[in-house]
Design a protein around this nucleic acid. Structure first.
Lengths: 225, 225
DNA sequence: GTCTATACACTGATAGAC
DNA sequence: GTCTATCAGTGTATAGAC
């Protein structure tokens, strides 16, 4: 395809297109998160986005394509957190950074997490290939890394797979079950202080639980996100 | 489309009505678990149950009523695990029994857990009343109990709410994400040995993470008054 | 109790005016 | 780019034969 870098004043149409697309994607993410793929209707997405239903089909060929794009976004979004785990060589730093980031992401945008959960509960018809390749490879790699920490005596013997599942489960729970958590919290979502306490509690229990508790106190507690 | 395994019949020798009803309920539980309330259709439930669609409406007035019954069953089923927590006065025994039971239940019937998760992701339109009364009261009570364990020096200081959420998240993850876990496990569900290892790992990390491991129980005793 | 036939709202998707 | 009108199919739910 022949792409021409156009001047800014000729990009107005492309600007409108990009804006409409992301508005629709954001709306679709919310509706898919709430009702799942089959339960979501294009009219609901259109209404949520504030556009006519025909606009959905103007920008996206089918409902399934739109769903795939939403899933792709979520997968890329979580990929960022996954990379974090590799950026630190020590278990305490790596796990702390990973857990905190995932907790923040669960709070920042819980819709993506819900769409993923819904997709997996369906049997991952769209994500299956991705699960069997990238996610599986990443998991194997992290399992080996955790094993090396055990061999180096940095953490106590632990089954790495179930440790990883525990971290995923706990951090994503704050996204997928945000409504239940808010209800039990008196009808209000966790405030900043509660969110910080939740992150600290989760991190402390896991690190201490695998014998990797923090030895030196560091005031790395800046306001994140 | 994703195929659902055949339903398990709960009744052995009961009336035709009772047997048909429980067959339909079991089928409905699977379909609701897979596609959510809106995404599930009565034809799919009928096919899964091996009866005609009209039979669904013969035994259950509406799709929503059938859904409510499925949710009610799940709620009662989990209530059994909830009671377990009160049957032991010591944190190690209570939490071990509770975690093990919830892990077993997640394996025994993950459909109920999925339906609950799906309902909550919708904003709990049906379960909201339960969440605001029974679940909230139970949670408050357990929070107080955990606080008393902290005061008695039986466990280290911990925010009880986030500990409870962690236990729920982790144990239910094995139900809600069983497909993803099986995929990462080479396409096979966790076998008996792996399930046992998962239970042990989860229990050990949590107990050790709150300073309630069996070994240190006696030495952690402190004069309180 | 079980089935087929059917009413009618809603679904995904398209055509065509502007 | 945006809208209304529309189609074929599926959705929930009911009626009535056997």
């Amino acid at each position: 395809m022949h792409r021409i870098p156009a001047p800014a004043r000729f990009n107005r149409k492309a600007g409108i297109r990009a804006e409409s697309e992301s508005t629709i994607i954001a709306a679709a993410e919310q509706v898919f998160a709430t009702y799942g793929y089959r339960g979501a209707s294009t009219s609901m997405i259109a209404e949520q986005a504030g556009v006519s239903k025909a606009m959905i089909y103007h920008y996206f060929e089918t409902k399934e394509l739109l769903y795939q794009i939403v899933l792709e976004r979520t997968h890329n979004w979580w990929g960022e957190a996954a990379e974090l785990l590799d950026k630190f060589s020590e278990p305490v730093e790596a796990l702390t950074a990973y857990i905190h980031r995932k907790m923040d992401m669960s709070r920042e945008n819980y819709y993506g997490s819900k769409v993923w959960a819904s997709e997996v509960m369906q049997g991952a018809p769209i994500l299956q290939g991705y699960l069997e390749t990238e996610v599986r490879e990443w998991t194997k790699k992290q399992i080996e890394r955790i094993r090396s920490w055990v061999r180096a005596g940095k953490i106590e013997p632990v089954e790495p797979f179930y440790l990883l599942l525990m971290i995923w489960a706990t951090t994503q729970h704050y996204a997928d079950f945000e409504h239940q958590i808010a209800t039990l919290n008196g009808g209000r979502p966790l405030d900043d202080e509660q969110h910080r306490a939740a992150k600290d509690t989760v991190t402390r229990i896991i690190l201490k639980g695998i014998g990797a508790s923090i030895k030196s106190r560091r005031s790395k507690r800046r306001a994140k996100s």
